[in-house]
Amino acid sequence: MDVLYFAWVRERIGTPKDKVDTQAATVRDLVEELRAREERYEAAFADLSALRVAVDQELADFDAPLAGVREVAFFPPMTGG
C-alpha cells in the first residue's frame, strides 16, 4: 500500500511517500503501526484531530476499513481557494 503525506505532515515525517506492507484493518490501526516506527512518525500523528485522511483519494474517517485499499494519504485540514 502507498502511504502519502502532504504539507507539514510530509515535512515532519521527512518523506512524501512510504510503501507499507500492512495487515491493518482500519486507518486507525495503520496510524498505530506508523507511530510505533520512529519518533518522527509519532510526532506527526500525535494529534489526530489535527489530521485528515483520504483513502484511495476520497476523504475518509480514521475508522475506514483498509481491505483492498491501494493508497492512503494523511494531511492537515485543507486550505484551498
Partner: peptide
C-alpha cells in the same frame, strides 16, 4: 476551501509557515 486537497505555505521575512 476545505474539501479540495490544497495547502498553502507562506514564506516571508520571519520564516515559513503553513
Amino acid at each position: 476551501k476545505s474539501r479540495a486537497p490544497f495547502w498553502k505555505k507562506e514564506h516571508g521575512r520571519d520564516g515559513a509557515d503553513w
